[in-house]
């Protein structure tokens, strides 16, 4: 079981992801420089980390999406490899059309950095296999552009295919406008592609993998991935 964490110029959660996987969870993990055009053959899961790739110039993720390694990430996902995009990674995945929709500016027009609660809407994915349907996780967000948007048809497809994996909720699991931090349609915090091997999420599971940092709910997502791969 091996993870790869892509490093784009401007990524700033790459080391957090690496540390969480290697030191908190004890998994094998390597960095993947964005200019590489080949990736190790023994990778099981590629992580596109959070940050401000290419300074968020033009649109978040728009330029990173054309980094040489992205061709390999796309090929990897087409073969069924697991890809997890966190925050800026989610934005890159939408720009690369590996996931539908786009992330707009938060409706508050503020950068939001705080803990949120997430409701598990689909536990039948490689990323949520150890979670219960409806389970509530506490994981931090830190973004300015996390307001998920897609046209009506796309939202319907997401719902029909069970692609909405996480929704923002309050601590009791209520999903409503008050528990929606950024204006995302359907309170979407994370979605997969149709095949369920690519997950994009705005919250940062890698930041809650160490009790010292205030929470460990993030570990459940990485443990799910490993459980899925090893099964």
């Amino acid at each position: 079981m091996k993870f790869g964490v892509v490093v784009f110029p401007g990524s700033n959660c790459d080391h957090d992801a690496y540390y969480a996987l290697k030191h908190n969870l004890g998994y094998e993990v390597c960095f993947l420089w964005h200019k590489e055009s080949i990736i190790p053959k023994d990778l099981d899961c590629i992580i596109l980390p959070g940050g401000f790739s290419y300074g968020d110039y033009l649109r978040t993720g728009a330029i990173a999406r054309f980094s040489p390694i992205m061709s390999e990430v796309i090929n990897f996902s087409k073969k069924g490899g697991l890809v997890l995009g966190i925050c800026n990674g989610f934005q890159i995945l939408t720009e690369a059309s590996l996931l539908p929709g786009a992330l707009l500016k938060n409706n508050s027009l503020r950068f939001i950095c705080k803990d949120v609660y997430l409701k598990v809407k689909n536990n039948n994915t490689p990323f949520t296999s150890l979670l219960e349907l409806g389970q509530i996780l506490r994981i931090p967000i830190a973004h300015f552009e996390g307001n998920y948007f897609a046209d009506e048809d796309t939202i319907k497809q997401l719902e029909d295919n069970d692609q909405i994996v996480f929704q923002y909720c309050d601590k009791d699991g209520n999903v409503n406008e008050f528990s929606n931090p950024n204006g995302s349609l359907k309170s979407i915090a994370g979605i997969t592609n149709k095949r369920k091997n690519v997950l994009g999420m705005m919250p940062h599971p890698e930041r809650y993998c160490d009790p010292v940092l205030g929470g460990t709910d993030g570990t459940l997502i990485f443990k799910s991935i490993v459980d899925f791969i090893l099964k």
Partner: peptide
Amino acid sequence: KLLYNPNI
């Protein structure tokens, strides 16, 4: 190719 995002 790059300058606009047809989704939005």
